[in-house]
Design a protein around this nucleic acid. Structure first.
Lengths: 154, 154
DNA sequence: CTTAATTAATCAGTGCCCTGATTAATTCCT
DNA sequence: AGGAATTAATCAGGGCACTGATTAATTAAG
């Protein structure tokens, strides 16, 4: 008697969009390496020697999740982890040769998948799609981290 | 040397969007009931007495996930599960009074949250946002379930 | 210099999401 | 009617995502 139309709820749509992407990734890119794992590989191609926390920051993974993803990639021999001699809390991360090869291979497939995924939209629509999603995400992210919590005292 | 810009990858954006939504939901709607759980409650407000599989279909959850979500809602006393006398494989699902109350309460908060979430977009942009995401999701969904798998023989 | 605050990483706990295999009930076909 | 396919639900197993608590190393402050 008071049910709501979920197709007008951005959260519901976001979840469906991600599910759709997950499926397509699985069939067109890889069943072994997931999209977040690829994101980590990519971050380390761009900036070899990052520590775990920073990688998480780059790709949008929290400390716990990034630890799990990295442990899987390490287990598969795609990246190496060495203690930072300058700061014993950190581990420095670096792709192995196999990791670099894997990243290269998946980069190609990912590009193809993105084309298929976005095929229902025209080029202009794709640009709008990116812009709108980015703006909404960034704004929500901003609510989370109040840039500078101005004087919060009585 | 060949890193890719993830902000042009729809999958990456979809994941970030969902994370942003998750955070906002947690702070503005509920820390107990999740968005998928609300979706299930909502489906049962609309159509009391659905079975588990159909609920999953309505809200976009696969058989395993819907089972987990329903078991949590049952544990919290928000819904009842009774074996269908007509078909002993099915369980018929129905909200408890508490479930109905919870749904009503969260509906209000969810509406507020959606406003905040979409605030960075104008009304027209919001409409476009929904349209584009729906079209991409539906198309990808379609790739998954070939409507009628026309003669697939040699 | 030594204690206190901070920071990187890990761990425990909860929940979502998918696949492939299994079990139990029903339906279809001969 | 009786065996074969189908179907609803469950289970096992892997992966993503978040929070709160803990541990170890570093930095800041007295």
């Amino acid at each position: 008697m008071a049910a709501v139309d979920l197709t007008t709820h951005p959260g519901h749509l976001a979840r469906r969009l991600q599910q759709a992407h997950y499926l397509l990734w699985n069939t067109m890119v890889s069943e072994e390496i997931t999209s977040p794992q690829f994101a980590v590989l990519n971050a380390l191609v761009a900036e070899p020697g990052l520590d775990q926390r920073t990688v998480g920051e780059r790709v949008g993974l929290d400390r716990s999740t990034v630890a799990e993803v990295i442990s899987r990639l390490t287990r598969r021999g795609l990246l190496d982890k060495v203690r930072d001699p300058q700061d014993g809390r950190r581990f420095l991360l670096r792709l192995t040769d196999d990791g670099v090869r894997t990243h290269r291979k998946l980069t190609v497939r990912t590009a193809r998948m993105n084309q298929v995924f976005l095929a229902p939209l025209s080029a202009e629509e794709q640009a709008v799609f990116f812009d709108l999603i980015r703006r909404v995400s960034d704004a929500a992210e901003g609510l989370r981290n109040p840039a500078e919590p101005l004087v919060t005292q009585a």
